[in-house]
Design a protein around this nucleic acid. Structure first.
Lengths: 339, 339
DNA sequence: CTGTTAGCGCTTTCAC
DNA sequence: GTGAAAGCGCTAACAG
């Protein structure tokens, strides 16, 4: 089966190429009879609209790119799905790449997407991303980029949770429990999200009577394996805090598992709290206290921002922070200070 | 910044357009000096290779499409990531769409991808997919499609777990526990995977002394909410089986939660087993017995198959089944028959 | 080894 | 209301 073009269609329908093109775009100046004839011919010949050709001519591609680290983390999965939905609703098709938190891989994916002429890019940056190489890739085609959930530059748009506020909320809750020590476990080192959460925790704990030393915090990969490893590192130093604050729910999963391997009972022997509030948090035993960071809101906001910037590239770089909300559950609520 | 073309580059480097094009593709017949000059010019001018234009000319797009239902299910997330990796490694960029198990949405996404001239499509079909409408979309451009994990037609390639074998393995294990009744909970009705798992369970339970009645099985959405709902429906009928077989680990999560809401202890009051063996299965309390269906293997195999078919469209439709493996954990191993 | 030429399928003026 | 012509950026075939 060879390709059917608008040319073929117009010939079959007895009209000119440009007329057929106008029918496609629903131009009202074409009489009903003509456009019906064209449409019939399309159906009969099995015509497929070729967006590549159209896009080449109009010099836009109606495609967007999304690069995220890893969607096995349900938080990123939710974010990704929201963005796909927004892109789809706006008529865009979405290229997706998973950097697996590898900067080089991420740069390659950026480059490919730029070559594919994407109209804009959502980037959840891999740890270690830098402005210079990214600009080296995107500036040549001046593709707008929105940073998601983490940022490495103030010169590009950014949408993410208000991590400082999230940390403060958590700190306040933990100190209200009567805990006297807290430790952060996990999260990618040097990531903006981690730095901000630490900052929020520090300010929140200040003057609360809870000892929190960020330098004890073990940075790890952002998944269950990281959580197990991180909590092991802490406990093996002989530190046994009243509260373990996980960098994320994904990390908290591993923390639960490692605690149990050591015959410690999360929520009783030590309280556990976390960030993100993925669906799982509520289903765990004990249900996990977590600060919700609303990936759906972040995704929608990011999509709005990117579409606006595509329309008007001259806008100032924007930062949009989503207000977090603490969800108290048994992993902290059931815990009682040692006497 | 306006677009830099090969034309500009060749002019700047003092060579012809075709020479510049040959340099791009690393043609060895071009002398070092010339190609260095061309590359220098590219860097200086900020040239970006335009794949759309190249692809239009060569009538291939070096893009593939992937449509899955929902990646918040870690099983599908893993599958998706594997496929992205394979596509990337083969030099393809991947369009991704999430159908959210909505057939109409899926058809729209298929159509868009076809219009974008994808060279091939991975499809994890939404419940209710039918051959006729799908062919109506894909046949016009004869894009090859590989079905993933579920199938609705024998005329398209398919790669998925051997669900019948998986069901049999689980049935055999459950009967070896001394259980006398088992019920399946959840999973999308009429999906091939569910039908096959039921078939495997039925044949596996035959003559084993375990009563298994597939008509008691409650079909639900393939997620935790579905699991809670499904197990509630079963228990509310006054049925209290020795073993609850979840359609998938995602569903099992909801089953654990609902059992606990009713003060039942999964793994003691009732044994629970499942399919997929996502990472979470091992981290749950009690750890969940599950039949691993290896999404990474499925993804890799599917990618191979699709790439082969792109090269040779005339191949017979293939079915490739991945051998499952039972992972026994405490959710069944700790359970003892009521006396 | 390099240059010229003719499109890929569509959109967009601008005449008729 | 409809048609003709030009061209988006690249590649491939062929001639020098």
């Amino acid at each position: 089966m060879k390709k059917v073009t608008l040319n073929d269609v117009s010939r079959a329908a007895g009209v000119s190429r440009s007329t057929a093109s106008l029918v496609l775009r629903g131009n009202p100046r074409i009489p009903e009879a003509t456009s019906d004839r064209v449409r019939l011919a399309m159906a009969e010949l099995g015509y497929v609209y070729n967006r590549q050709a159209a896009n080449m001519r109009r010099s836009e591609s109606m495609t967007l790119g999304l690069i995220v680290t890893d969607i096995r983390n349900p938080y990123f999965a939710g974010l990704t799905m929201t963005i796909e939905e927004a892109a789809h609703d706006a008529g865009y098709t979405l290229f997706v790449g998973y950097s697996r938190d590898d900067v080089e891989r991420q740069y390659l994916q950026l480059e490919t997407m730029v070559q594919q002429q994407v109209d804009g890019i959502f980037l959840l940056p891999a740890t270690g991303s830098e402005l210079a190489p990214v600009c080296g890739i995107i500036d040549r085609s001046s593709v707008p980029v929105v940073q998601l959930a983490r940022y490495f530059s103030e010169e590009l748009d950014y949408v993410g949770p208000d991590n400082v506020a999230a940390g403060q909320q958590l700190a306040q809750h933990v100190s209200s429990l009567g805990a006297s020590t807290a430790v952060l476990v996990g999260g990618p080192e040097h990531s903006s999200a981690r730095t901000e959460r630490i900052k929020g925790l520090e300010t929140g704990f200040t003057g609360s009577g809870v000892a929190f030393d960020a330098s004890l915090s073990a940075a790890t990969t952002n998944n269950a394996a990281g959580g197990s490893e991180g909590v092991a590192r802490v406990l093996d130093q002989g530190i046994w805090p009243d509260c373990i604050v996980a960098y994320s729910d994904a990390v908290a999963l591993g923390i639960y598992a490692e605690l149990r391997r050591r015959n410690l009972d999360p929520g009783r022997d030590v309280s556990v709290a976390s960030f993100d509030d993925i669906t799982m948090a509520e289903l765990l035993l004990p249900p996990l206290t977590s600060v919700s960071t609303y990936p759906e809101l972040i995704g929608r906001r990011a999509a709005e921002l990117l579409l606006n910037r595509i329309r008007d590239p001259a806008l100032q770089p924007q930062r949009s922070l989503i207000e977090p909300a603490l969800k108290v559950r048994a992993s902290t609520a059931q815990w009682r200070p040692r006497t």
